[in-house]
């Protein structure tokens, strides 16, 4: 990391006069906080605590948790590999039609996930445009496989990474890259040694967002990948299924999902965001 820049910023922070927040801001913030936290706290109230260990350490729950963690990790890596370059192009390139490109990239955010899953099915399913070709050429089909889960998650989570990374790139500006260029650095060299380290915190927070979205993904997965223990049944799918028969189990598993999400966001995010990697 460019240590002098960080140090300079810290020095500046120390000398800043602390500006109080307007009192009026606290009330809407508290209402918003209540809206988010109260329903989740309600889950805790509904939980059958004595049965909790039995419910969340059942074989089906552990299978689902393992599958969720593995697929979400792979999907997050795919989001970085493919979404990262999209963000760079959106933030830095001067090609025409960027506005349209950005709108298209954000589509999965507006699309109901089930519709996204159906769209994937129509493209990559056995009777889909590309799916049919894959079956005749390679003899396998994508739906009902773990790969389908990863594709569904990557589809819905990519915009989260693109949006936050593009924001970070825009905030960082191009001054340092310009300096690097005047010192004779090639575009690739400047990108690797200046741009990437500069937006690493933004990339990390985008990756955490994408990972969190993957963990919670339900609609696209059920539509595209189906639901089979150990292969495609992630934690949210198991929750949805269990609530049919055993609401207590569904609540317990939801709690597990909440804990995973909180750990991911609370532990991973601040450390990365503050750039102390």
């Amino acid at each position: 990391m460019n240590r002098p820049a960080v140090l300079a910023r810290r020095a500046r922070d120390r000398h800043q006069i602390s500006v109080g927040l307007p009192t009026l801001i606290w009330l809407p913030a508290a209402i918003g906080f209540a809206l988010i936290v109260l329903p989740v706290a309600g889950l805790g109230l509904k939980t059958d605590w004595p049965r909790l260990p039995e419910l969340i350490f059942s074989e089906s729950a552990l299978d689902a948790l393992r599958l969720s963690m593995i697929t979400s990790s792979i999907s997050t890596v795919l989001c970085i590999l493919f979404g990262g370059p999209i963000a760079v192009i959106l933030a830095r390139s001067r090609i025409g039609g960027l506005r349209l490109l950005r709108a298209l990239v954000l589509l999965p955010l507006v699309l109901p996930p089930v519709v996204g899953g159906l769209a994937l099915l129509f493209l990559l399913g056995r009777t889909g445009l590309v799916g049919r070709g894959i079956e005749t050429a390679f003899g396998f089909t994508i739906p009902f496989t773990t790969a389908a889960v990863v594709l569904a998650q990557t589809f819905v989570a990519m915009p989260f990474l693109v949006v936050s990374l593009e924001g970070a790139l825009r905030t960082a500006g191009q001054r340092y890259e310009a300096v690097a260029a005047t010192l004779g650095a090639s575009p690739m060299h400047a990108f690797r040694r200046v741009t990437v380290p500069l937006v690493l915190p933004g990339l990390a927070s985008g990756a955490v967002l994408a990972f969190a979205r993957c963990i919670g993904e339900f609609g696209a997965t059920i539509a595209f990948a189906g639901s089979l223990q150990g292969t495609t049944r992630t934690l949210p799918l198991l929750v949805y299924l269990e609530r049919e028969a055993d609401v207590d189990a569904a609540v317990a598993l939801s709690l597990l999902l909440v804990v995973v999400a909180v750990v991911v966001i609370a532990v991973a995010r601040p450390r990365f965001v503050e750039g102390q990697t």
């Binding site: 009902f144 189906g226 495609t232 299924l241």
Partner: peptide, 9 residues
């Protein structure tokens, strides 16, 4: 004994 590819909700 059926081995389904998916058990739907």
């Amino acid at each position: 004994d059926i081995k389904p590819v998916s058990e739907e909700p």
